[in-house]
Amino acid sequence: MGNMATEIVAFLLTISGWILVSSTLPTDYWKVSSVDGTVITTATFWSNLWKTCVTDSTGVSNCKDFPSMLALDAYIQVCRGLMIASVCLGFFGAIFALVGMKCTKIGGSETTKARLTVLSGFQFILSGLCCMTACSIYAHRITTEFFDPLFVAQKFELGAALFIGWAGSVLCVLGGLIFCLSLSEGFSMRAEYSYSGAASFVTARNNHSKTANGLHKEPGAPSRQFGRNAYV
């Protein structure tokens, strides 16, 4: 029962993390223009993985999609690939977790469900690591340009999407680790039960053999052990 509750907690953590990771991908504010050291304060520039926009003082936004994927900076292409991989891994991890959890009635035998559970745990861990890497690469580029004294273009600060992505990746990794630890605990309990069952079976068999030998021997009958020269 405790193992089942642990799996439910891990599933809730991983699903929450995957939802945050999925919402990070289309979120607008990956980076926001900084007002530090700039003269233009009436407009706000912001970008994500798909477009760059500017919002004026009246709240009207003008956006421009990135014209070419091949002409993009390498870090944006890497972040795109990692985020898409993170969403896909989390999606299949959720399916395998639903099939492999003990509280569900699908998935086949206990061994098959255990394998699906550990597979979903590894997928959620990879999903969280992919999202964490993408957000860290993007944040590293922003901070590098911000603190570079020779960079004279518009400087940006970390957007809300990066913090949402980091939070979701932590939840995915934590839930995946709980899945794997709950599986190892289940295996250890199963091994202990098998060992105790085998030991009781051997003890019962020995007791049965001793009882059978006692029944065949009549009370007060002489022992049938003979000396070496008994038939000489």
Rank of each mutant, 00 (worst) to 15 (best):
S16T: 14
D36V: 12
R224G: 09
L171Y: 01
G159I: 13
L20N: 08
L72H: 00
S127V: 09
H216L: 12
D148R: 05
L129I: 13
A230P: 00
L116Q: 11
F156R: 06
L49A: 13
L12Y: 04
K31V: 10
I142E: 12
L119G: 13
N229A: 03
A204K: 10
S200I: 08
L13S: 10
C63P: 02
F201Q: 10
T41C: 10
V87M: 13
S194M: 12
M4Q: 06
A212Q: 09
A198G: 02
W50P: 02
E110F: 01
F147H: 14
R190W: 09
T6V: 05
F146D: 14
S169M: 10
S184P: 00
L181P: 01
A71Y: 04
S61H: 02
L25D: 09
G186M: 05
Q77G: 04
S136F: 09
D73S: 15
R80L: 09
G227P: 00
A198M: 06
F91L: 14
A230C: 03
F151L: 00
D65S: 04
S47A: 13
I178Q: 11
G90A: 08
G159C: 13
T58H: 00
M101Y: 02
V152L: 06
S127N: 13
K31F: 08
W30S: 12
A230T: 03
A5N: 02
S127H: 10
S61A: 06
P219A: 04
C172A: 07
V87Y: 11
V60K: 04
G227A: 03
H208Y: 06
A71S: 11
T14N: 03
L126R: 05
Y75T: 04
